[in-house]
């Protein structure tokens, strides 16, 4: 018996997946977004001055394991999450998508993003940076094992907070 060779992954497939994810996030469909995650998924936003830091030894802005992501979503969907009520309108543009590594069913993906965030009476906030994903192949699609958001700004500054899923 021969083992089937791992299927070929194309950039177009990865792009489709990331665009789908971006749409769910921009539309605040966070429970559907959660379904894209593996059971051991993690979500990281490192501090602006230590982009390559380790969350166990460096103070991050966000360092969520799967359970913390679940709790974060309960929180941000609650009308008492004042920083996100009324909800920010966000619009993210994703580009420069690259498959940078492949290890069995794990695919490392890099992409650039701009995320515009609007709230009433407030200045526009423009989050610019890079996404780094570790995706797990699942059927003809993917699940997110790790999602890391690297912000280019030297300090969060006028961006203020990361109270939504960036």
């Amino acid at each position: 018996m021969t083992v089937a060779p791992p299927r070929v992954i194309t950039r177009a497939e990865v792009e489709d997946f990331l665009y789908h994810e971006a749409a769910l996030l921009d539309e605040w469909k966070l429970n559907e977004w959660q379904e894209l995650l593996t059971d051991d998924a993690a979500y990281y936003v490192p501090p602006n001055d230590q982009l390559e830091g380790d969350h166990r030894t460096t103070l991050f802005l966000v360092a969520d394991d799967r359970e913390r992501i679940r709790q974060r979503i309960i929180r941000v969907l609650d009308p008492n999450c004042h920083a996100e009520f009324p909800k920010s309108r966000t619009r993210r543009l994703i580009s420069n998508v690259r498959i940078v590594a492949r290890d069995g069913d794990l695919v490392t993906v890099a992409a650039n993003f701009v995320c515009y965030r609007y709230r009433r009476y407030e200045r526009i906030r423009e989050y610019v940076g890079a996404y780094r994903y570790i995706l797990r192949c699942a059927g003809d699609s993917f699940r997110i094992k790790e999602r890391r958001v690297l912000i280019d700004a030297h300090e969060l500054g006028t961006l203020g907070s990361v109270s939504f899923i960036l």
């Binding site: 460096t58 407030e122 969060l156 500054g157 006028t158 203020g160």
Partner: peptide, 11 residues
């Protein structure tokens, strides 16, 4: 002081 600084503005 642990590595990783948080610098943000408040209006």
């Amino acid at each position: 002081i642990i590595a990783g600084v948080q610098e943000y503005d408040v209006a």
